[in-house]
């Protein structure tokens, strides 16, 4: 990877961290409502995996902790922030909110709040890629908690049986909301659970983006090469609670401290400094530029954007411009009476 890409990757991860922290502030100011699940601490996973994918070409789908996946997949950051604000300029026109960011123009097919629901949707996207004969793949990001849903087992079985081009990325952050993995999963190494379905799998450090990229590159090559699905597990940790309403009382301070020492941004920043790619001053300047961009472009856009019109409440329930040939109503001549 060349030096300018390395700098860009570090900047992206800093941007995602500041984006999440700024949305936390807006949440505390009650400018963002609902639930807000932040990705701080896990940035290397989505950033590294999708760096190796062909964003805009491959399909990406995930759960409710979806802001960073959407942005790295290509959704404009200001539209993601506007969606958190519930504005009509948001990724989902203010109808989805934090948990339901969509941008099909870049094949980001959504964030979903039902744990495990994206497994079959991802396999379906992959089925479509295979059916059309394109070289696209589907990438499904979910947490370790999702693997205790039936959809995990059902979907892995079908994805393997039908050799679907789908990459399952398990972001193992050790907690299913507030329940630690050894209290919810009989097998704590998630990649081992996949063996029953004849799908190759592996486990890697999710805090070091270089490790993530190397592992993802190989996994994506497997999937894109027509060899069927791959399951890749990254060990990671969320630095904040599950969502804003989380007291975080279930984790020890010692554990949190240990993982903070393995902050993905610091790991990569230190490496680039050691390699003389960047200096401390460069990183400080990068931080400042990111903060300026978030404040002056991203947040301003969200704050200044209009609300959706309440009279548009009923839009998007069904196709708003259906073809009358399929919909009707019945003409008088159609009545058999």
């Amino acid at each position: 990877m060349n030096v300018s890409d390395q700098k860009r990757l570090l900047r992206e991860m800093i941007f995602y961290r500041r984006f999440e922290e700024r949305s936390f502030e807006a949440y505390m100011e009650r400018k963002i409502g609902g639930f807000l699940h932040l990705y701080s601490g896990q940035e290397a996973v989505a950033t590294g995996v999708l760096e190796m994918a062909r964003c805009g070409h491959d399909y990406v789908i995930t759960g409710y902790r979806d802001h960073v996946h959407a942005m790295k997949a290509g959704a404009p950051a200001r539209e993601v922030m506007a969606e958190l604000y519930g504005k009509v300029t948001g990724s989902s026109r203010g109808r989805g909110g934090s948990m339901h960011i969509f941008d099909p123009t870049v094949n980001f097919m959504g964030g979903y709040a039902l744990v495990g629901q994206p497994f079959p949707l991802a396999a379906g996207l992959a089925l479509a890629c295979k059916h059309k004969g394109t070289d696209q793949i589907a990438i499904c990001f979910l947490g370790d908690g999702a693997n205790n849903q039936g959809t995990f087992h059902e979907t892995l079985n079908m994805a393997s049986l039908w050799k679907l081009p789908v990459l399952f990325v398990c972001e193992n952050n050790l907690y299913a909301i507030g329940t630690r993995i050894d209290r919810s999963s009989a097998v704590t190494d998630q990649y081992k659970r996949v063996g029953a379905y004849n799908i190759p799998s592996s486990q890697h450090d999710g805090q070091d983006i270089d490790v993530v990229m190397t592992a993802a590159r190989d996994a994506i090559a497997h999937v894109r090469g027509g060899k069927g699905p791959y399951f890749i597990e990254f060990m990671t940790y969320r630095q904040r609670g599950h969502s804003m309403s989380d007291s975080n009382a279930y984790r020890s301070k010692e554990e949190e401290r240990k993982w903070l020492e393995r902050d993905p941004i610091n790991i990569y920043g230190d490496r680039l400094k050691k390699a003389k790619v960047l200096t401390d001053a460069d990183i400080a300047a990068m931080e400042k530029a990111v903060l300026d961009e978030i404040e002056n472009e991203i947040v301003r856009f969200a704050e200044e954007s209009p609300e959706p019109r309440v009279e548009d409440l009923n839009l998007y329930c069904l196709d708003d411009h259906p073809d009358p040939r399929w919909i009707g109503p019945l003409s008088q001549g159609d009545h058999n009476g």
Binding site: I61, P104, M109, L121, G124, A128, C129, H131
Partner: peptide, 10 residues
């Protein structure tokens, strides 16, 4: 769900 995902991709 696989049918639904496939339908989202055309």
């Amino acid at each position: 769900g696989i049918g639904i995902g496939a339908s989202m991709a055309g």
